[in-house]
Nucleic acid binder design. Structure first.
Lengths: 338, 338
DNA sequence: ATGAAAGCGCTAACAT
DNA sequence: ATGTTAGCGCTTTCAT
């Protein structure tokens, strides 16, 4: 049987209230009593029962995090950020994976609330307004993260996709590329961050009088990128395209895979840029030039915001924007003279 | 305010005991009463307060998992296995990352026990006998997983490393390789799974009358593998070595990176085998031939074992061994004729 | 089959 | 400054 507050009280010859007071530092306690209590705690190896605590305070030091899939490396990075910062403030992580299932997301939110979590961080990849409405009403502090969709009405942490896209295009043009293709996600384009990215792309192309060359892809996997290669190879040649800007690293990597398998050299024959800086991007050969999305920071900042709300601070801005970075690596270079 | 058992009791015109009975199906309840209770629960959207429940039963449906680093992909896969199976049995995951810190591991074990977790799964990469002793005494069901060290005295789920190594060597020799080098982890070799792996390697080499060619590496990152390349390049040439068997995928990949940067073609000039089948292994070009360690399954089986113990089943074997698989991909081929 | 009541370990309001 | 006491929401005897 684990030792309880009573055991400590008895040994220290004080009441349980006094013990509680020294544990929580909630009210003044005489130095003498405090000393005895501390000694008793030490002696018995007493650890307060967190469950009992939660029951009365209606708060746990648990942060619920509902992710799409813990197997995605960006998700792991976010969790890492949440976990590490949470730890500093003595918060623990309760983890659920929804695997893109709307109903699962909702079930987990309810489940986490039953567990009295102090806050919820949700990493979703789908559109699920119900869960957002529910979260909003629940009055529990939360942050909603979505890699693909623009989050408009909920507290979130994001990056400036417009600026990121500007950086990519500037870099490519600085290198001398003019015939630049863009590979975009076709699904829900109006609602996703593709809107900002493609807008930037189009404007930069317009600025040098070139017509945009846009290819579409449906899916977020390397294999989808590979399949893009199959579809667009001929068009690339016909159009004298020297650079392809892909909306995601996975697509870029798949495309490079395709090029590798068909003896098209990157970057000698064609430059490729990705978006995201997934871990693979830097291990791959050639190393991928890409936009670094600071996932660890996104996680870290998310939980800090929740912690702030918990401490009664008011949050002014729904969306907190983090800086992005263009990582210039080896998949881009000056175009061959034609 | 969330609805409680009292609200349900009042609405159903029964006592809270009866409500409790129907929720838990713990004692017979008349059909009529049950119907009313169910209806009330439905109407109020009542969800039992898990915290209060845990307090009295001294059990939560939480499985604590202490991992080394959630950023490692193999760790993510294990968690995925644990989470997915746990979910089926209505268990949730409480996650902590120790980042290889002994004291953190111990603190987390204590913390999890305070939270009344039903069981603990520990994914460690270091040797920490204290925490094992502590876990053992605590009587809480646990599984101890360690990728590098042989776990002897604690309940664990592992693979047969001897058999895995046999498969690698057989494959290489079937392809015609004779001058095969092995890259091993130098640290704690006697205590780690390297013991079994290198033993197999030596025996296979002896069986064809070749002297073993062993190189050492200290570290588990791709960069460490790269650095191995720097050190051994000349020896590889001198010794007419046609294949390198690396103790870990990361080392193999780093080595291939080095080869790529120095115009040594894989597998044309030299074959490389890894160990682990990290996700990168199949994306990489050339795709890596390697041993698949079934991490998802390891996680899934781990939690099942804990669940079994929780249901009172006796576990006979401390160590449960899972089958391995050699994945033949593109980083190995017949050696060039010399 | 059902209800009353005790109690899980703790916090916090109240009293002293 | 300290102790007494009433819950938090639930499960589980113990009566009936």
């Amino acid at each position: 049987m684990a030792t309880t507050i009573k055991d400590v009280a008895k040994l220290a010859k004080v009441s349980i209230s006094t013990v509680s007071r020294v544990i929580n530092d909630s009210k003044p306690v005489s130095p003498e009593a405090r000393r005895r209590v501390l000694k008793a705690i030490e002696e018995l190896g007493y650890k307060p029962n967190e469950v009992a605590r939660s029951l009365v305070t209606k708060k746990s030091n648990l942060i619920g995090i509902i992710v799409d899939d813990i197997g995605s490396s960006y998700v792991a990075q976010i969790i890492r950020g949440v976990e590490e910062v949470g730890r500093m403030y003595n918060y623990d992580i309760l983890l659920c994976s929804s695997y893109g299932d709307k109903e699962a997301e909702m079930r987990f939110v309810q489940l986490l609330m039953q567990k009295q979590v102090a806050g919820i961080i949700m990493v979703s990849e789908i559109l699920n307004s119900e869960v957002l409405t529910y979260l909003d009403m629940s009055k529990i502090p939360f942050i909603y993260l979505n890699k693909y969709y623009n989050v408009l009405e909920s507290p979130t942490v994001a990056i400036n996709n417009r600026e990121a896209s500007d950086k990519v295009m500037k870099h490519l043009m600085d290198e001398g590329h003019r015939k630049i293709a863009y590979v975009t996600q076709e699904k829900d384009m109006e609602l996703t961050i593709e809107k900002q990215k493609i807008e930037a792309y189009r404007e930069w192309m317009a600025s040098i009088g070139e017509t945009p060359i846009v290819f579409e892809v449906d899916g977020h996997n390397i294999s989808d990128g590979y399949e893009v290669g199959v579809r667009i190879k001929d068009k690339l040649l016909e159009g004298n395209i020297t650079a392809v800007y892909c909306c995601e690293d996975e697509i870029a990597l798949g495309l490079i895979n395709y090029f590798y398998d068909h003896n098209i050299r990157v970057p000698e024959d064609i430059s490729v840029v990705g978006y995201g800086d997934i871990s693979l991007a830097s291990y791959y050969r050639p190393k991928l030039t890409t936009i670094k999305e600071p996932y660890y920071d996104i996680g870290a900042v998310s939980i800090r915001r929740i912690l702030k709300v918990l401490q009664g601070e008011k949050i002014e801005e729904q969306t907190l924007v983090l800086p992005v970075q263009l990582i210039e690596r080896d998949s881009t270079s000056r175009p061959k003279n034609i």
